[in-house]
Simulated assay, not measured.
Amino acid sequence: MATVTLKGNEIHTMGNLPEVGGTAPDFTLVKNDLSECSLSDFKGQKVVLNIFPSIDTGTCAQSVRQFNQEAAELENTKILCISRDLPFAQARFCGAEGIDSVETVSDFRSGDFGKAYALEFTDGPLKGLHSRSVIVLDENAKVLYAEQVAETVDEPNYKAALEALMDA
Protein backbone atom coordinates (compact mmCIF):
# COMPACT_ATOMS: atom_id res chain seq x y z
CA MET A 1 0.00 0.00 0.00
CA ALA A 2 1.27 3.47 -0.90
CA THR A 3 0.27 6.59 1.00
CA VAL A 4 -0.37 9.91 -0.74
CA THR A 5 -2.37 12.94 0.35
CA LEU A 6 -5.42 14.80 -0.88
CA LYS A 7 -5.29 18.39 0.35
CA GLY A 8 -3.03 17.23 3.17
CA ASN A 9 -5.16 14.28 4.25
CA GLU A 10 -3.66 10.79 3.92
CA ILE A 11 -5.24 8.38 1.46
CA HIS A 12 -3.95 5.03 0.25
CA THR A 13 -3.53 3.05 -2.94
CA MET A 14 -3.46 -0.69 -3.46
CA GLY A 15 0.33 -0.85 -3.59
CA ASN A 16 3.33 0.55 -5.40
CA LEU A 17 3.78 1.44 -9.05
CA PRO A 18 5.72 -0.93 -11.32
CA GLU A 19 9.44 -0.56 -10.64
CA VAL A 20 11.85 1.21 -12.97
CA GLY A 21 13.65 -1.47 -14.98
CA GLY A 22 10.75 -3.91 -14.75
CA THR A 23 8.21 -4.77 -17.42
CA ALA A 24 4.88 -2.98 -17.29
CA PRO A 25 1.80 -5.18 -16.95
CA ASP A 26 -0.41 -5.47 -20.02
CA PHE A 27 -3.82 -3.82 -19.86
CA THR A 28 -7.07 -3.40 -21.71
CA LEU A 29 -8.58 0.09 -21.79
CA VAL A 30 -11.49 1.66 -23.65
CA LYS A 31 -10.97 4.30 -26.35
CA ASN A 32 -13.37 7.17 -27.04
CA ASP A 33 -15.06 5.16 -29.81
CA LEU A 34 -15.68 2.35 -27.24
CA SER A 35 -13.19 0.01 -28.91
CA GLU A 36 -10.48 -1.50 -26.74
CA CYS A 37 -6.72 -1.10 -26.76
CA SER A 38 -3.98 -2.88 -24.88
CA LEU A 39 -0.35 -2.14 -24.10
CA SER A 40 0.70 -4.68 -26.73
CA ASP A 41 -0.94 -2.44 -29.38
CA PHE A 42 1.87 0.06 -28.80
CA LYS A 43 4.82 -2.36 -29.06
CA GLY A 44 7.67 -0.64 -30.87
CA GLN A 45 6.68 2.80 -29.55
CA LYS A 46 7.62 4.59 -26.37
CA VAL A 47 4.56 5.13 -24.20
CA VAL A 48 3.77 7.72 -21.55
CA LEU A 49 0.95 6.74 -19.19
CA ASN A 50 -0.52 9.95 -17.75
CA ILE A 51 -2.88 8.63 -15.06
CA PHE A 52 -5.26 10.71 -12.97
CA PRO A 53 -8.53 10.59 -10.97
CA SER A 54 -10.87 12.55 -13.29
CA ILE A 55 -10.53 14.70 -16.38
CA ASP A 56 -13.13 17.06 -14.89
CA THR A 57 -10.76 18.48 -12.27
CA GLY A 58 -8.34 21.35 -12.84
CA THR A 59 -5.07 19.53 -12.23
CA CYS A 60 -6.10 16.48 -14.26
CA ALA A 61 -7.23 18.65 -17.16
CA GLN A 62 -3.96 20.60 -17.02
CA SER A 63 -1.91 17.39 -17.21
CA VAL A 64 -3.76 16.40 -20.40
CA ARG A 65 -3.19 19.87 -21.88
CA GLN A 66 0.51 19.86 -20.93
CA PHE A 67 1.20 16.40 -22.32
CA ASN A 68 -0.80 17.28 -25.47
CA GLN A 69 1.50 20.28 -25.99
CA GLU A 70 4.64 18.21 -25.37
CA ALA A 71 3.48 15.32 -27.57
CA ALA A 72 3.81 17.35 -30.76
CA GLU A 73 7.60 17.36 -30.22
CA LEU A 74 8.03 13.63 -29.53
CA GLU A 75 8.97 11.01 -32.09
CA ASN A 76 7.80 7.39 -31.91
CA THR A 77 5.95 8.13 -28.67
CA LYS A 78 2.32 7.64 -27.70
CA ILE A 79 0.84 9.46 -24.72
CA LEU A 80 -2.15 7.77 -23.10
CA CYS A 81 -4.19 9.83 -20.65
CA ILE A 82 -5.91 7.32 -18.38
CA SER A 83 -8.76 7.69 -15.91
CA ARG A 84 -11.99 5.95 -14.93
CA ASP A 85 -14.04 8.69 -16.61
CA LEU A 86 -16.49 7.54 -19.25
CA PRO A 87 -15.08 7.78 -22.77
CA PHE A 88 -17.88 10.25 -23.59
CA ALA A 89 -16.59 12.71 -20.96
CA GLN A 90 -13.02 12.27 -22.19
CA ALA A 91 -14.08 12.91 -25.81
CA ARG A 92 -16.13 15.96 -24.79
CA PHE A 93 -13.16 17.45 -22.95
CA CYS A 94 -10.72 16.80 -25.80
CA GLY A 95 -13.13 18.26 -28.36
CA ALA A 96 -13.73 21.41 -26.31
CA GLU A 97 -10.01 21.87 -25.63
CA GLY A 98 -8.68 20.99 -29.10
CA ILE A 99 -6.69 18.08 -27.67
CA ASP A 100 -5.43 16.00 -30.59
CA SER A 101 -1.87 14.82 -29.83
CA VAL A 102 -2.66 12.48 -26.92
CA GLU A 103 -5.17 9.67 -26.60
CA THR A 104 -7.60 9.53 -23.70
CA VAL A 105 -8.54 6.01 -22.63
CA SER A 106 -10.75 4.75 -19.84
CA ASP A 107 -10.57 2.04 -17.20
CA PHE A 108 -14.31 2.34 -16.51
CA ARG A 109 -15.33 -1.19 -17.52
CA SER A 110 -13.35 -3.25 -15.05
CA GLY A 111 -10.86 -1.12 -13.16
CA ASP A 112 -8.28 -3.82 -13.94
CA PHE A 113 -5.68 -1.26 -15.03
CA GLY A 114 -5.79 0.47 -11.64
CA LYS A 115 -5.45 -2.85 -9.89
CA ALA A 116 -2.63 -4.20 -12.13
CA TYR A 117 -0.64 -0.99 -11.65
CA ALA A 118 -1.57 -0.87 -7.90
CA LEU A 119 -2.67 2.77 -8.11
CA GLU A 120 -6.36 2.49 -7.31
CA PHE A 121 -7.35 4.44 -4.20
CA THR A 122 -8.55 2.11 -1.44
CA ASP A 123 -9.99 4.75 0.89
CA GLY A 124 -10.88 8.43 1.16
CA PRO A 125 -13.18 10.49 -1.05
CA LEU A 126 -11.50 9.25 -4.26
CA LYS A 127 -11.85 5.55 -3.37
CA GLY A 128 -12.02 3.47 -6.56
CA LEU A 129 -10.37 6.16 -8.75
CA HIS A 130 -6.72 6.25 -9.85
CA SER A 131 -3.89 8.01 -8.11
CA ARG A 132 -2.16 10.75 -10.11
CA SER A 133 0.85 9.02 -11.64
CA VAL A 134 3.11 9.08 -14.67
CA ILE A 135 4.80 5.98 -16.02
CA VAL A 136 7.16 6.10 -19.00
CA LEU A 137 7.83 2.94 -21.01
CA ASP A 138 10.33 2.11 -23.72
CA GLU A 139 9.47 0.35 -26.99
CA ASN A 140 9.34 -3.04 -25.20
CA ALA A 141 7.22 -1.93 -22.20
CA LYS A 142 10.23 -1.62 -19.89
CA VAL A 143 9.56 0.98 -17.18
CA LEU A 144 11.91 3.95 -17.62
CA TYR A 145 10.27 6.30 -15.11
CA ALA A 146 7.51 6.03 -12.53
CA GLU A 147 6.07 8.81 -10.38
CA GLN A 148 3.11 8.66 -8.05
CA VAL A 149 2.41 12.28 -7.15
CA ALA A 150 2.63 12.65 -3.37
CA GLU A 151 -0.08 15.33 -3.12
CA THR A 152 -2.99 14.47 -5.40
CA VAL A 153 -3.83 18.10 -6.22
CA ASP A 154 -0.26 18.74 -7.48
CA GLU A 155 0.86 18.27 -11.08
CA PRO A 156 3.34 15.54 -12.02
CA ASN A 157 6.98 16.27 -12.81
CA TYR A 158 6.59 16.69 -16.58
CA LYS A 159 10.25 17.54 -17.06
CA ALA A 160 11.53 14.35 -15.37
CA ALA A 161 9.09 12.18 -17.33
CA LEU A 162 10.09 13.72 -20.64
CA GLU A 163 13.81 13.51 -19.80
CA ALA A 164 13.37 9.78 -19.20
CA LEU A 165 12.07 9.51 -22.78
CA MET A 166 15.03 11.42 -24.17
CA ASP A 167 17.55 9.35 -22.21
CA ALA A 168 16.15 6.06 -23.55
Rank of each mutant, 00 (worst) to 15 (best):
S131W: 04
F121L: 10
F27Y: 04
P25D: 08
K7M: 13
G95R: 00
V64E: 10
Q45E: 11
A72F: 08
N140L: 02
T104W: 07
Y117S: 02
I79R: 12
I55H: 00
E70C: 11
E70P: 06
Y145A: 02
L137G: 15
N50I: 02
V48K: 05
R132A: 08
D112L: 08
S63T: 12
E97K: 06
K142P: 00
R132S: 10
P25T: 07
N9K: 14
S101V: 01
S106G: 11
R92D: 01
G15I: 14
C94M: 03
A146F: 01
N157R: 01
G15N: 14
L74D: 15
A141V: 02
E19M: 05
A2F: 02
D167A: 15
D26L: 08
H12I: 09
T152P: 06
C37L: 13
R109Y: 03
N140C: 05
D154E: 15
L86T: 07
Y145I: 01
R132L: 06
L74A: 14
A89K: 08
C37E: 11
C94P: 06
G22I: 00
S38R: 11
D41V: 04
N68V: 04
L34Q: 12
A89I: 04
D85E: 10
N32V: 10
V102T: 15
E10Y: 02
K78W: 07
S38M: 05
Q45M: 09
V105A: 05
T104H: 10
A91N: 10
I55Q: 00
V153A: 07
D167T: 14
T59M: 01
C60M: 03
E103C: 03
F113L: 04
A160V: 01
V143L: 01
G22V: 00
K7T: 08
